[in-house]
Design a protein around this nucleic acid. Structure first.
Lengths: 199, 199
DNA sequence: ATGAAGCGGAGCATATCCCTCCGCTTTCGC
DNA sequence: GCGAAAGCGGAGGGATATGCTCCGCTTCAT
């Protein structure tokens, strides 16, 4: 039903190698943005993706194109996976917890890192959708009683940014992810077990 | 008593402007390392410090010199402030919490970011001292019963690395620090309120 | 006041980055 | 299989950033 909207971000490329390379480029860019906390060089993106520099320029002719595609990709995947994690959950608290873990895996943090660099008025819909999802989760967890009323969407958003950046750059990615998820769980435990009114 | 050892890291510079500039350079380098998660360019350090590039090269003639000085400076300040925070504390749990906050303010995270880049066998004493301090704090908090036996020094160390890196780079430093301390408190709440045996 | 120590930044060599172009390779409908 | 169309890779050249030196001017301590 929204098929054509999805195609804005992920055009229906005919050839398999083109689709594969596009995905590799996006993944590489996400990694590099999270590592550096800034816009990566194009050469670095192509190298990390394991494709030629020419391929990068064919897929994303201008600088902003790549970064916009990255943000859109991350938002889409977060919303999609977040929704389904949400559906599988039995309580508001569990749903919120699952969403946060999803956000780490999708690399949601790139959005806040990249937004200041992009003067684009192009994806209010996607941002709004992500925001609504989060608000819904917060509401559910609140009525569950698993989080206090003073826990805001911003708290969760800031935490996911923090936890989806790599800790020490040379580290094994698997160990990196495992640490992030473990630390996030502890953080969420902290949020969810606070006696009301703790400053 | 250990005055001469301290001078290895902070030589007794005669002139006030030299001392001031040295400190500015160290602070700038710490900021940049935490932001980028990597070795910063020398030009960037001098610019951030507000001094001429020549001044940087006079204080730190070679690349490693600056980075070593940064690590030593951070370790020294963490140990010193950590010790005194420790003395002011009434319980093991409080001491551990204070130490973690100190580590954020001193920028302890640079050590793990920089260590892979430095092939230096030069400050085992300082590292050992920091490690001992942390172990002592963990022990105290354990016998307090404020943390579980399965909470390790590594858990605390990794958390401090995570929380002392800036969240979004353009952000106001004061807001940045405030967020970091708030999030750290939540994380510590999580660590300290875990029912035994939670995976 | 004055000499010595320190400061700043111009400037050059080097490395990195941006982007184009075109011959070769892969894919897919037949 | 086969051929054409679509995609790929990376050399290369101009632009930019970085590493480091050098020396005339400024600031500090006495």
């Amino acid at each position: 039903m929204l098929r054509f909207m999805a195609s804005v971000n992920a055009p229906d490329l005919k050839r398999a190698d083109a689709r594969r390379n596009r995905r590799r480029l996006l993944d590489a860019a996400i990694e590099l943005v999270l590592e550096a906390g800034a816009e990566p060089s194009r050469d670095a993106v192509a190298k990390r993706a394991g494709v030629g520099i020419g391929t990068l320029y064919r897929h994303f002719p201008d600088r902003e194109g790549l970064l916009r595609a990255v943000v859109l990709d991350v938002l889409d995947r977060t919303i999609e996976q977040g929704e389904s994690a949400c559906e599988e959950s039995r309580s508001g608290g569990e749903a919120l917890r699952r969403y946060a873990h999803v956000a780490i895996d999708t690399g949601l943090g790139v959005v806040s890192i990249l937004r200041p660099l992009l003067d684009t008025p192009s994806w209010p819909d996607r941002q709004a959708a992500a925001r609504q999802l989060l608000d819904r989760l917060i509401g559910a967890a609140r009525s569950d009683g698993t989080i206090d009323a003073d826990v805001t969407a911003t708290d969760i958003a800031l935490a996911t940014i923090r936890f989806c950046r790599p800790l020490v750059i040379g580290l094994d990615p698997a160990a990196e992810r495992a640490t992030a998820h473990r630390q996030l769980d502890v953080y969420l435990d902290g949020l969810m077990s606070r006696p009301s009114g703790t400053p």
